[in-house]
Simulated assay, not measured.
Amino acid sequence: MTFAHDTELALAAATALVNSDPAGGSGEDTLRTHDDLVRFLDEQGWFGSRLGDADELEAVRALRPGLRELWHLDEDALVERVNQILADAEALPQLVDHDGLGWHIHAVPQDAPLHLRMAVEAAMAFVDVVRSHELDRLKTCAADDCANVVVDLSRNRSRRFCEDGCGNRENVRAYRDRQRAD
């Protein structure tokens, strides 16, 4: 395991949130409706309060460009941005144990607005990335037609593609190119 379990979960959730934006590689917004948001939150294991209204959906959607930016910042700029997110949220990290997850850190209460919890969870995960000197694990999908972000948690740092099937498409493309060359 590269990072603590909660850090890996937060990085995966931030990655999934960023990649739900049509500015990514898919070209399709997968967070258009409240039902989409509920499905996303359930898939990512988000606990805590949910208002379920249009404002909450829009606030979560509005997080995506700012989080995407984190993948492309150098260390100093990333530290500055993460610190700003935590300061804006008046984050106060505390150890918590709920829902059988074991001890982990929450920096804002579970009844804080969803978009705030999501931003702070991502920021706390990026704190660990910076502290561990692992910025090179933050990547963009290597497929030519995709701009999705990737967190490479592989042991040998070899992950190149996002989870939208780009790796399979690139392998098929390479196979067909080889077949044509023969």
Rank of each mutant, 00 (worst) to 15 (best):
D21G: 07
R64T: 09
L51I: 13
A77D: 14
N156E: 14
F47K: 02
C146A: 06
N171R: 02
A14D: 04
V120A: 04
A174D: 07
L135K: 07
V108G: 01
N83P: 07
L153R: 10
A59Q: 10
N171V: 00
V82M: 09
A119M: 09
A123M: 02
D144G: 13
L57V: 09
R157N: 13
H133E: 15
V172K: 00
A181F: 14
A16F: 07
R159D: 11
E80Y: 13
R50K: 07
R68I: 07
V82S: 09
T15M: 00
C166P: 00
Q84C: 09
I85T: 02
A16Y: 04
G102T: 08
D76W: 05
V130S: 11
T30E: 10
R39D: 15
F40M: 07
R180F: 00
A77L: 15
R176K: 09
V151I: 11
E58T: 13
N168L: 00
P22H: 08
V82F: 04
A119H: 12
E58A: 06
R50F: 11
Y175S: 00
E56M: 09
A59F: 03
L70D: 13
T30Y: 01
G52K: 02
A119G: 12
Y175V: 09
V38D: 01
A87S: 15
F3E: 09
V130Q: 05
R173A: 06
V60G: 08
L17I: 12
L135G: 03
T30R: 11
V130E: 04
L153G: 15
S26A: 08
R32D: 06
R39P: 03
D6P: 07
V127W: 13
F126N: 00
E80L: 14
S49K: 03
Q110L: 15
P113F: 04
D21C: 09
A12R: 09
D97Y: 05
W103Q: 15
V60P: 05
A87Q: 11
A87R: 13
D152G: 12
